[in-house]
């Protein structure tokens, strides 16, 4: 933008704050957004430090041998033990890295696919735009969750007897890949709108005038300016992916070897009446994580698209 002003004035002594710093100034004033950021940081912290925080080994079932399965919360087991004799608190803490891996992994795939498809559609336009956006709409309207359930179940049978079978946590990886491959359309739509808008911006015209290559225009001029709008969707998507994985696992199609909150609900739901803590603790963990990302996304919307709402 600055380059467009042909003023022979001396350069300002301080560099004006960039798009990210300005966003941060606005974000800081948003109470909900800050709460969301706090919750997200808490989940990240737990995910990094769970081996030090957890009072027991997550695979420790020795409580069952002592007849202590489904025991109510006590000093030894702050959140009780579940149906299988696991310490609930330790399993909930160890569920955090799984949840974050699912959320970040799925959204990394979704962002990559979404930005490439949406970017091409917006920049090239014409028939290609039409075709790509119809394709995106297809994925928006179909019952994604139902299809994912079938794919997870059937893929588990397909891999039997192939080298893929030996990949550790294959089931979880499948879920992550699926959530990513079905989660890109909103990002593609936003990326298309942003690329369409930015390709006519003055600074892009200026870049074309000075002979910047197409690659530079796309990656160095348009993409960084499109990112603030996209990051809102990514934050929302992470929460959505965590929730989706919890639902898939709750229905019994999750990774039996992974420690995930949905998996805990699946194993402990039938003991809800006698040991409610086994279901309540992972449920609250899912809620706080999803709430954190939703509030964060809300704050980011206010910070980066202040015109959208007042």
């Amino acid at each position: 933008m600055d380059a467009a002003i042909p003023a022979p004035l001396p350069a300002p002594p301080v560099k004006p704050p960039g798009i990210w710093r300005q966003g941060w100034y606005r974000f800081r004033r948003n109470r909900g957004g800050m709460v969301g950021l706090g919750l997200v940081l808490l989940v990240v912290l737990v995910a990094l430090a769970c081996p030090f925080l957890a009072p027991h080994d997550p695979g420790d079932q020795s409580a069952m041998l002592r007849g202590g399965a489904r025991a109510a919360p006590s000093w030894l087991h702050p959140l009780g033990t579940d149906r299988m004799g696991y310490d609930v608190l330790s399993r909930v803490l160890y569920g955090a890295p799984t949840a974050l891996a699912v959320g970040l992994g799925a959204m990394a795939i979704a962002s990559l696919v979404g930005i490439v498809i949406g970017g091409i559609a917006g920049y090239v336009g014409g028939l290609l735009d039409e075709v790509l956006m119809r394709f995106a709409e297809f994925f928006l309207v179909i019952p994604v969750f139902v299809v994912i359930l079938a794919v997870v179940r059937l893929f588990g049978i397909i891999v039997v007897g192939t080298p893929l079978e030996k990949v550790p946590h294959l089931n979880l990886l499948t879920i992550i890949a699926l959530l990513g491959l079905f989660g890109w359309p909103p990002i593609a739509r936003m990326a298309r709108a942003e690329f369409l808008r930015l390709k006519q911006a003055e600074f892009v015209e200026a870049a074309i005038c000075i002979g910047a290559t197409k690659r530079d225009i796309l990656l160095r001029h348009i993409l960084p300016n499109a990112l603030p709008s996209l990051i809102v969707l990514v934050a929302l998507g992470i929460g959505g992916a965590v929730l989706a994985e919890a639902m898939v696992s709750f229905l019994g199609f999750g990774d039996p070897k992974a420690i995930s909150w949905g998996q805990m609900l699946y194993f402990n739901y039938e003991a809800l009446k006698v040991a409610p803590w086994g279901s309540l603790a992972p449920g609250v963990a899912i809620f706080l994580t999803v709430l954190g990302f939703n509030l964060l996304a809300d704050g980011l919307t206010d910070a980066f698209n202040p015109r959208l709402r007042q």
Binding site: G239, F250, L265, G283, I286, F287, V290, L291
Partner: peptide, 8 residues
């Protein structure tokens, strides 16, 4: 309410 997982 929007962030509370429905099944929870």
């Amino acid at each position: 309410g929007h962030s509370l997982p429905g099944f929870f």
